[in-house]
Design a protein around this nucleic acid. Sequence first.
DNA 1: GGATGGATCAGCT
DNA 2: GCTGATCCATCCT
Length: 202
Amino acid sequence: MTDKLINWLDQTDTITVAQGLLGAVLEVGDCAGLIVETEAYLGERDRAAHAFGGRHTRTNAALYGPAGTIYVYQMRQYCLLNLVTQPVGVPQCVLVRAVEPLLGVAEMAMRRGRSGPAMTSGPGKLCQAFAITLADNQQLVNQGRVHVAWPGRAPLLIARKPRIGVPNKGEATTAALRFFVAGNPYVSDVKKTEINSNGGWQ
DNA sequence: GGATGGATCAGCT
DNA sequence: GCTGATCCATCCT
């Protein structure tokens, strides 16, 4: 069954996808939220990408799957959620870094042990809030537990900045490949003075 | 608000 | 052994 979102991922370059996913709805079970922050990882040539230099291991195998493949990467205690954005064999992806909760807020707060922006304002945080684990790795979006409804709400303004946690890697460090809804309070490192009263939505 | 260090662990070299 | 696509508490200014 062909999925509208998967078609779009398959046919759209990764940077455009990273921006286009802002405002889309992430749904897992009874929980849902709006994607407000993403990062683009551009495959073999991207020193910050897990597929840099064509690296292909058991852990990152999902990156080489078809567009719409979910790539869950575990780092220390936490899992990180990615969506493969290109056809089979092209290991590019978008990392979902932050989400604005819509449904299942009480459940997310319980799983996180925290409330407010601290629930989902980071890639590890949102996976814990939505109970996304390695069990979801290599599944196809919209066909397993993890769903993305697209398009969703429209951001007023999309901001670009360098990616987080990518030090000393030249162009990979400085390139503005992180995208977020400007003024949204759930963006991972947002300053209070930058928060917009309308949440950054149109 | 910004900087720092510790927790913690699987996977790769 | 070493290393992170992290998070949090705890300083300091």
